[in-house]
């Protein structure tokens, strides 16, 4: 029963983290697009290659 509880809570943690990462990545994408629209710059113009 304890092990099942643990699995349940770790599954919740994993789901929460997945959601947080998805939200973060969606926000990063939207703000970058907004910046490129604002400045007319393409990502490649912005200097160095940015590793993601």
């Amino acid at each position: 029963e304890d092990a099942a509880d643990e699995n349940q809570s770790s599954a919740e943690v994993i789901a929460r983290r997945k959601r947080l990462v998805d939200e973060w990545n969606a926000w990063r994408t939207s703000i970058r697009l907004a910046m490129f629209e604002d400045t007319g710059k393409k990502e490649a113009d912005h200097g160095d290659t940015e590793k993601e």
């Binding site: 997945k18 990462v21 990545n25 990063r28 993601e52």
Partner: peptide, 9 residues
């Protein structure tokens, strides 16, 4: 440390 989730910089 948190698995293979790809996190944008």
């Amino acid at each position: 440390p948190y698995g293979d989730l790809e996190i944008m910089d």
